[in-house]
Design a protein around this nucleic acid. Structure first.
Lengths: 119, 119
DNA sequence: ATTATTGTATTAAATCAATAATACAGTTAT
DNA sequence: ATAACTGTATTATTGATTTAATACAATAAT
């Protein structure tokens, strides 16, 4: 699994984004156990403390729950995951449309551009 | 004119983005003189050095040219402006579609969401 | 039982970006 | 001539982030 960490923004923020994405899109299965902090840090080639910081952010959002000596577990709250996925998508749409609108590009042009994309 | 500077990202980057946007969408007229560094900084309520840093980024892109003791002037290169506007739009579309796709949302759904937006 | 593996906390150091304060030299305006 | 206004350079400070080195207590594995 690709961990593409750049240095244009705080590393731990990028880790939160990537982990959240994997939970919301089902790459990480609901209710299952994550790799250990140290192993995740190894995969992403970051310091364990940085990964730990990212994981604690995810726990605040309720996406994972940490069990002291056992590991970090993905939430099994399906509604939460669905809702957060929808919310994230909405935010992306809103942000995107705001920028595009400010650039003076019409809705019609925008949709044409999107239709050219591959997905 | 609204300068909405948050503190979630580097201020000078946000200034570059806002200034670039204003040049590309015609808020600032081609070939005209900008307010002085200090006045712009006053408007945006940032330190003059921070605004200066943003302006020097714009000069690198060729969007403005600085004349030592006279001021900063918006480029009159119409093609450059058009091209940068198109490029910026393309990048936004690409970035947006990449995230949406990764979230597992279809093109059809995406276009429906955009159609609900007001622009 | 013993060993290894969890998450977590602490402290320190190093690095880097952003901001701030100030000064300067060259026009421009009065 | 004088004063005010340009962009620009220099230096220092502040603050956030990352890394690092440990330590600990609880559990799981052997």
């Amino acid at each position: 699994m690709a961990w593409e960490i750049k240095n244009d923004r705080p590393v731990y923020i990028q880790l939160v984004e990537e982990l959240e994405m994997r939970i919301l899109n089902g790459t990480y299965t609901m209710g299952t156990k994550l790799l250990s902090v140290r192993d995740l840090a190894g995969e992403a080639q970051v310091n364990p403390n940085t990964m730990q910081k990212a994981l604690s952010e995810l726990e605040k959002k309720g996406l994972i729950s940490s069990r002291r000596t056992s590991g970090n577990y993905i939430t099994d709250d399906e509604k939460l995951i669905k809702d957060l996925r929808t919310e994230l998508a909405s935010n992306e749409v809103e942000t995107f449309c705001g920028k595009i609108k400010k650039l003076g590009i019409t809705k019609k042009e925008t949709i044409e551009l999107i239709n050219k994309e591959d997905f």
